[in-house]
Every structure is written in C-alpha cells, then in structure tokens.
Design a protein around this nucleic acid. Structure first.
Length: 271
DNA sequence: GGCCAGGCTTCAA
DNA sequence: TTGAAGCATGGC
C-alpha cells in the first residue's frame, strides 16, 4: 500500500485502478459521479469521496484517515489483490487479453452481503439507470442503505414508493428468511459454493444470476460466474466450449472484464 | 412508441 | 426437464 497524508485527505498510488471502470460498471449501484474525476459513495454507510488526480495512478481519498484506508477502503477496493498478475494470467486467452486491455482498471468491489443480495434482487430484468433510481430512493428513505433488520416491518405495499415493481415482494421474502434465521448469511459465507448457491436460491426472486452476483460481489467468491444477457452473448460467441483454463478460480473477475468489454466497447456490434 | 433491461416464477407439456 | 408466458416499470 503506497500512500501519504495530504491535509485531511490521503493520496494513494494504485495501479490497475480506474474509477469509471470500477465504480460505474454495474457491480455497485450507489456511486455517484459528482464531477469529471470524482465519485461519492459509501460502504456500510461510511461515506467516501474519491478522485483521480492528474497524475496517472494517483487517487485522492477525501476527508479520511490511515486506519479507514487500511481497514475499510483497501479491503473494499480489493487493493490487496494483484490485478496486474490476474490480467497477465487471463491474457493467455486472446479475447480476455482484449477485454483486459480495453478496461484494465476494473477491480471487484468487496461489498456488504445484504446490500449485494438485495441490490441484485432489484437488478433482475431491469436496466442499470433504473436500478440506481430504485436503490437511491431506498437509501434516501433510510438515510443510508438499510440493514435487513431495519427492513423487518416492510411489506410489498410499504415499499411501493420504490417503484420496484414485482421485485418488492422478493425483497420482503429475503428479509423474512434472514430475520427468521432460516438463512444465516454468516453461515452462507462458510458454505462450499454449491450449498451457498442452493441456499440463496431458496429466496423468492433469487435464481442463478442473482445468486452468482451475490456470491461474487457480496461474499468475494471469485469462482462465482454471473451470466446475464451480455455474458451469455460472450459465451455464445467467444467461448462455445466454456471458459479457458486460465480463468480457473477467478472466473468472476474475468467475467467482469468480459461483461464491460462486450457491453461498452462496440465489440458486440462487430460480431 | 416499441423494445428491452446484470431474470425469476409459474404453469404447461 | 425444458419451454414459454407473465411480470412492473421506465430508459432509450
């Protein structure tokens, strides 16, 4: 970790990190771009404003301190993982080499379990701008992202202001199963991946895709591989025989490069 | 204005 | 086990 204090801020030197590519690539939904090079967001309701400086690879974490950097943000931004090494591994494969070259500053955000689960329940059959709108209304209502405990008394009707459609009843079911103890997210964290998948999918509105996203972004299970419409296109066009060996154990991270590549680079239109 | 969205449930066969 | 309709809402 290469950093220094600068007044109330911390200046961080970090390779393989781009704010747009990481904070606005559909893995988290409440980072707001407040200026050309600055985002405002939160993890577990600890807020952060982060900017990229003129000098490449330098980031300013506003109004924070060393212990929050090391204990919270370095974890959240997955700074203890060497993405350069990961990209070298992935680049044995020619398509992944292009994807990593296209947006090499993507990192996985190690998010809160409940926030990831509930956010991706909301995400289903939905587009990213509207997902952000729904989650924005939820956070505004609760003055921060609500815990499942805070949502215990919610019903589909009481959540109508979210305008989340049929997904509201799924959120209610997730809260019910967790607050009754039927599902314990701490236990899910300890399960092997197959049991974790099966357990999460007992929640109404949680199928394969939402379960994979929850495991990848909420539990940092990097072998989880979410397949949405875009990644299905990736697989159909580039990997009809399955993912290459070089992704083993980190399929979810590879998926994030591929997802961003096919969705925003124009590569899909060329197929 | 119609198509589609980081899908899932339900119900048929 | 697989296939297809239905789902709420709004972005583009």
């Amino acid at each position: 970790m290469d950093y220094r204090k600068d007044g109330h801020d911390i200046l961080l030197k970090q390779a393989d990190f781009d704010l747009d590519e990481t904070l606005d690539c559909g893995q988290a939904f409440r980072w707001e771009k407040i200026s050309d090079n600055t985002y405002k967001g939160a993890f577990l309701n600890k807020g952060l404003v982060i900017s990229s400086e003129e000098e490449k690879g330098i980031f300013r974490l506003h109004d924070t301190n060393e212990s929050d950097l090391l204990e919270i943000w370095a974890e959240y931004f997955d700074l203890y993982t060497d993405y350069g090494e990961l990209k070298r591994r992935f680049s044995e494969d020619s398509t992944l080499a292009k994807a990593c070259g296209y947006a090499g500053g993507i990192r996985i955000l190690k998010q809160d379990r409940w926030e990831a689960l509930s956010s991706f329940i909301i995400s289903q059959n939905n587009n990213i701008p509207r997902i952000k709108g729904i989650i924005g209304r939820l956070c505004e209502h609760y003055d921060g992202y609500p815990s499942w405990q805070e949502m215990k008394d919610e019903t589909a009707e009481s959540l109508a202001y979210l305008r989340s459609g049929f997904r509201a009843k799924y959120l209610v079911d997730a809260v019910a199963k967790i607050s009754s103890g039927e599902i314990d997210l701490d236990e899910v964290a300890k399960m092997d991946i197959a049991d974790a998948r099966k357990t999460l999918q007992t929640i109404k509105g949680v199928g394969p895709k939402v379960a994979e996203c929850t495991l990848l972004f909420g539990f940092y299970r990097t072998e989880a591989f979410p397949m949405d419409v875009w990644v299905k296109r990736v697989m159909a066009n580039w990997y009809p025989n399955g993912l290459p060996e070089c992704t083993k154990g980190a399929e979810g991270i590879a998926q994030q490069y591929l997802f961003h590549y096919i969705r925003t680079s124009g590569a899909f239109e060329e197929i």
